[in-house]
Each structure stands twice: as structure tokens, then as C-alpha cells.
Amino acid sequence: MELAAAQPHPTSSDISVSQDQIRNELVSVLSRQTENQEGAIETAIEGLLLAKVCCSTGPIAGIQQPALSVMVKGSKQVSIGNESYRYDPFHYMVSTADLPVTARVTLTHESEPSLGLKLLLDSKEISLLLSDENLPPIDKQQDVKGIQIHRLGQDLLDPLTRLIKLLETPEDIPILAPLIKREIFYRLLRAGQGKQLQQMILQDGHVNRIARVLHLLHDNYHQPLKVDELAKQAHMSVSALHHHFKSFTAISPLQYHKNLRLQEARRLILSTDQGVAAVARAVGYESPSQFSREYRRLFDVPPAQEKHKWAKQA
């Protein structure tokens, strides 16, 4: 498995006192906001979610939304296909498409929970920033991927902390939260993700065409995969679609389609009374045995066993 390269951890001499203070303040606010809670936590600020995990986890499958993701305690590794991306209190992750991933959280100390946050990317706000005549030139990137890791510095730490602190003065949220989120998106544009975010917005270009293909796959996951039809919808040749799709998502259209089906199947197994065979048919599988094999390969447990285990716990 290929692990995306991240910059080495900075030494104590690299970290300013002000950065340390901001990090500590961010940890304190997140600790207060997640007290007596665990897992993904919605907030009063639109698009902002907090996360608290009390023990290191094995790989958990899910859909990674377009978002800025930050770990302030502990670390997280996100994998898709043969590529993995790790971020920690010194790095952040930007994802610009809905991608089926597996994630693993590691605690710094087993006695202390991990703390993190996720800010969903607002395409409308980013589009307004990109059209602002005062926006400085955007750095060009040769390789635009759906997930990227970058160094977390004070210019981004500061507005993130101010945004989280608004949760303690909810009367300020309606006025100040949109302004601070705009600043955060601006900092992302200026910090090297300009091309990545620009491609998410543009109506033309390979990345936007792949984004349209992703939406088609999400809307029609239960239907047989027709790559030639997807290529036609994206105004690409089949070979170009395969090349740009895998470059952006790290997996092929077939793998992506299969993962979407299995993610929805797991949701149905854990949240409905449908039997395994009925779930397999609902997500588009004609063969229950093939469904069970592929389900076990992704989630490390047969669907019938997971359903039985969940039913006993309910």
C-alpha cells in the first residue's frame, strides 16, 4: 500500500510559542464541546462536525465527503485503493469529492481520546472567492487528486480556532461563522490547494467531468455499470475516463461502483429488517454468494454474521 508522503514532524524549534498556544486552545475548546459525547458530532455551525474517538480503531469503511479534515489529538489514516493518507495535529487533509474510503484512528495515548473536526467545503462560497478580482494568483499544481495532505500552519489554525470558539457563544454564530468560514476557504486557496478547489468548481476540465461521473455512480449504484455510457456522459473516451478517474480517486470506476453498493448494503443490513438476500438484490447483486464474498472482503465479516451480531446488540 502506498502511503502519501507527508512532511516530517516539526521539531520544537520549528514550532512558535503562538502556534503551541493556539493548538492548546483548540484542544481545550474541542474537549469541552465533546464532553460526555463520542463519535461524529454535529454542531450549530452549518457544515462543521466534531469527532471524538476513545480507542484506536481498525479500518472502518465509509464515504469521505468534500471537506477540510483536521486532527488536533491523535492521527487518522484514510485509504482508497492502494493509496493511504495520514494526517495528525501537524497536517490536515482536503478531499474534493465523495470517495469510498477506509479509515483508521490512532490515539496518541490510549488513556486520551482523539479529537478532530471536519468542515464541509462550500462550493458556492469557494466559487465566489475564485471570481473575486482581488484574489491573488493561484499556485498551479500538475497533479490534482481527490485527497491531499498539507502542513497545518498558524494561518489556518487561527481561524479554525476562532470558528470552534463560536460554539461557546452561539449568539455570534449567524454573523461571524460565515465570515470565518470564508477566511478558512481563502487560506486553503492561498496555501496550495487553489488548483484542487478550483477544479472542484469549474464547469469544464477533467476533474469536474470526473465529479459528474461520481454523481452518476452515486445516483445509479444499484444499476449495472456501463462504462461506455459514463464516458459518453462525461464527454470522454473510455480510456480517458479510466485514466482520469483513477488518477483522481486512486481506484477504477468498477471498484468505486462496487464499494458504493457494499456501503449501501451495510447501511441496509444495520438499519433495516431485510434479509441478506433481499439486501443483495436491493443494491444490484444477482448472486447472493458473490455479494457475501465481496462484502466480507471489504468489511472483514460476512453479512449474515454482522446482521446477527447487530440484532443481538439492538
Rank of each mutant, 00 (worst) to 15 (best):
L3C: 05
A4T: 04
A6I: 08
Q7Y: 09
P8H: 06
D14Y: 08
Q19W: 09
D20G: 12
N24M: 12
R32M: 00
Q33S: 14
E35D: 10
Q37G: 02
Q37L: 15
A40T: 08
I41L: 15
A44K: 13
I45A: 10
G47Y: 03
L49R: 13
A51M: 10
V53L: 08
C55Y: 04
A61S: 11
A61D: 04
G62T: 09
Q65L: 13
Q65M: 09
K73C: 11
S75W: 01
K76I: 08
Q77S: 11
N82P: 05
S84L: 03
Y87H: 15
H91N: 09
Y92G: 06
Y92D: 07
Y92P: 09
D98Q: 12
L99M: 14
T102W: 01
L107G: 05
E112C: 06
S123F: 04
L128Y: 10
P137D: 05
I149K: 05
I149F: 03
R151M: 07
G153E: 03
G153T: 07
Q154P: 01
L156C: 01
L156S: 07
D158P: 00
L163Y: 01
K165P: 08
L167K: 05
I175Y: 06
K181Q: 15
E183H: 11
I184A: 12
Y186T: 12
R187K: 13
A191M: 08
Q193L: 15
G194T: 05
L202P: 04
D204Y: 10
G205S: 04
V207Y: 07
N208L: 11
R209W: 11
R209D: 14
A211F: 15
V213Q: 07
L214I: 15
L214C: 11
D219S: 13
N220P: 10
Q223K: 15
P224K: 09
L225P: 04
K226Y: 12
K226D: 04
D228K: 15
E229Y: 12
E229Q: 14
E229N: 02
E229S: 05
S237F: 04
V238W: 01
L241S: 06
S247P: 02
F248S: 03
T249C: 13
L254R: 04
L254K: 03
N259C: 14
Q263M: 08
R266S: 08
S271F: 07
S271R: 00
V283H: 03
S287Q: 02
P288W: 00
Q290C: 01
E294D: 12
Y295H: 10
R296K: 14
F299W: 05
V301L: 15
P302E: 06
P302K: 13
P303T: 03
Q305V: 11
E306R: 00
H308L: 15
K309V: 05
W310C: 13
Q313E: 13
